[in-house]
Simulated scan of single mutants.
Amino acid sequence: MFLKNYACCSDERLMEQLNSNIHYQLFCRLLLGIGEQINNFKIISQIRCELSAKLDIDKVQKCLAKHWLPYMEELDQVVTDATCYESSLRFPTDQKLLWEATDWCQNQLKLLCSYGKQAMPRSKYNKWKQRYWNYSRKRRKSKKERTAITRGLLKLLKKLLEELVVMLKQLDVQMPERYYTQYAIIEKVLKQQSYRFATGKSPEDRIVSLSKSYIRPIVRGKETKAVEFGAKVNKIQINGISFIEHLSFDAFNEGTHFKSSVYFAQSLTHTKVKIIGADAIYATNANRRFASFNNIRTDFVRKGRAGKHEHHRKQLAAQIKKERATRLEGSFGKDKQHYYLNRIKARKKDTETLWIFMGIHVGNALEIGRRMQNQAIIAA
């Protein structure tokens, strides 16, 4: 899994690298003989699933911090911020989601009718299939066209779901667990999209993908990407080494994690935090009072009159902001561009969490390795 994020390649490509690169083999404590190779690249996916089921982020991070502390300095200084690591999925629209749900229901009906040797129930599936194809090919879609296609797909999806229930009762068969899970997701999609179509409001915990039903829209407010789809992570950074304070696939306000970030940093380093840098969203009155009570210096914009040492406060705040803007926010881009966190291709919630965890800490491990090498050179 370390090599997966280090090499930034697919499972199949990674297995090819492992078979041909002796350095990768030695890293994995594996030495293949002449002409010997591993052909089953799916073993990487099996390892990923096994590790994701056992991953305890807090426990592992405390273990890593314990071994990395000798190579870290300025343990009383922390910076924190949040980012979104996007998942690999097609850009979600209501029409795409409804069509995927409708198509799934139609395919399940075909299978059940084939099993029971029955004729397919009548529906307008073929008509709406052609209409959806014509709609999807258009570069510009008017509001009138969107409304018509959404209304038609909602009615068709409702009918197909009802037909599935009737068909299962008639045939009296037990479907796999995966079927009932997907049926429940589609039923929830129908309720949410019906509510959205009737009121124009976004429902709570809106599903945007059938294959990744745990993904939620994360409103970031950026110029290029107003909304992102993936896991939101609140990170802390100590001397350039990043740790995950909170990871969630639901949107959350990182400003409420200011206190927990301080306590989390102290639990990792066993050192009292004296300086912390954070974005303006963290600068709430409650967080300001907490920082003042614990004698923690911040880079928050001052409220009220200037103090006696205002000049020194401004200098310190400028240094903290520079550290946060360069090292912490720079680490977001480095993780996404160099450690395979740009578009996460995992298919399950647990494996996607493991993917993010490995991507962040692979970068940390390489940085610690460079520091170990520098210390060895100096000592020599």
Rank of each mutant, 00 (worst) to 15 (best):
G35A: 05
I38C: 04
F41K: 10
I43Y: 06
I44P: 06
I44L: 15
S45C: 09
Q46L: 13
I47T: 02
R48S: 15
C49P: 00
L51M: 13
S52K: 02
S52T: 06
K54P: 08
I57G: 07
I57F: 04
D58K: 14
V60Q: 09
A65I: 01
K66F: 11
K66N: 12
P70Y: 03
M72S: 07
E73G: 02
E73L: 09
E74Q: 14
E74C: 12
L75E: 08
Q77F: 10
V78S: 04
D81P: 03
T83F: 06
T83Q: 04
C84A: 12
C84D: 02
Y85L: 13
Y85G: 01
E86H: 03
L89T: 05
R90C: 09
F91M: 03
F91N: 09
F91S: 08
D94E: 13
Q95H: 07
T102M: 03
D103G: 00
W104D: 04
W104C: 04
W104I: 03
C105F: 04
Q106D: 11
N107V: 01
K110R: 11
L111R: 12
L112S: 06
C113Q: 05
S114P: 00
Y115M: 06
G116E: 05
Q118C: 09
Q118V: 00
Q118S: 12
A119V: 05
A119S: 12
M120Q: 07
P121N: 05
S123G: 02
N126A: 14
K127D: 08
Q130N: 13
K138P: 02
K138L: 10
R139K: 14
R139Q: 13
S142I: 08
K144M: 07
R146V: 11
T147G: 03
I149N: 03
R151G: 07
